[in-house]
């Protein structure tokens, strides 16, 4: 009897959650700063080394990093980006990481970009969750700060392109929980496949274009999957000729 009541409660809980969250979860995936137009020809873009994390998702949903998967994914993504680079339609140069303080600073900016993109995804791309002070302006105003132009290596650049991927592959336990939960009417996701690609104006630090999604396609641990991920990350890149991942 008690188990029946608990199951009924779980089902009610699941249904309520899905109903409550449905409108707010209408997620946007791309943002462009109002009035931004990529200058034609001769634009110099520096590509930062992508921030890549790959691991497993435990039954309880915790991230468990996997160094081998991360190394494999980095190799695959680097190759896929090199392949796609020529289609971006601009002069793209990989950022040359320095040593010591300069390397530390570029790592900090990679981290700052990820935090910025997290905020855009949470507070801009979910219209139901916008911040009142930003909602009123109804615009896309995000920045990593004008100090970014002081990062060594960006002296001759017009824009800097940041890429972040983070994949949590659902463990067997997590997948089993997902199936069991679905039987009870509760929606639980298995796996996180987050990807951000963002273009920043070096002179102002303003984010002028962002693609962001928490459930991207492509298994980054494989060559083909990494290529699919990169095409999805760079889909709609201003001035590019990259085909959309969905069209492939």
């Amino acid at each position: 009897m008690r188990k029946t009541r608990l199951l009924a409660a779980a089902m009610a809980c699941g249904i309520s959650l899905s109903l409550l969250s449905a409108p707010a979860l209408a997620q946007e995936k791309t943002g462009v700063k109002a009035g931004f137009v990529m200058p034609a020809g001769g634009t110099r873009i520096v590509l930062m080394r992508p921030s890549v994390r790959v691991g497993a998702q435990s039954t309880g949903g915790l991230f468990e990093p996997n160094a081998d998967w991360t190394a494999q994914a980095r190799e695959n993504l680097d190759a896929a980006i090199r392949k796609a680079q020529g289609q971006l339609g601009h002069q793209v140069t990989p950022y040359e990481d320095g040593t010591g303080a300069a390397d530390s600073l570029s790592n900090q900016y990679r981290g700052l970009f990820t935090s910025l993109a997290d905020s855009v995804r949470e507070f801009q791309f979910f219209p139901g969750n916008r911040l009142p002070t930003k909602k009123r302006k109804d615009s896309f105003e995000w920045t990593i700060g004008p100090e970014a132009k002081n990062l060594p290596g960006l002296e001759n650049a017009d824009y800097v392109l940041f890429i972040t991927t983070e994949d949590h592959y659902g463990s067997a336990g997590r997948k089993a929980l997902q199936i069991f939960a679905a039987l009870g009417g509760v929606g639980i996701t298995s796996g996180v496949h987050l990807g951000y690609a963002g273009l920043v104006d070096v002179r102002t630090g303003e984010l002028v274009w962002l693609n962001a999604d928490q459930q991207m396609g492509g298994d980054v641990r494989t060559t083909e999957g990494a290529e699919k991920r990169v095409s999805q990350l760079l889909e709609g890149f201003p001035g590019s000729t990259i085909r959309s991942a969905s069209a492939q």
Partner: peptide
């Protein structure tokens, strides 16, 4: 069953009320 409810609640994003 308790684990399911707890996980679902933990996973449910709180997207309202800013």
């Amino acid at each position: 069953i308790t684990l399911i409810i707890a996980a679902a609640l933990a996973a449910a994003p709180a997207y309202a009320g800013n």
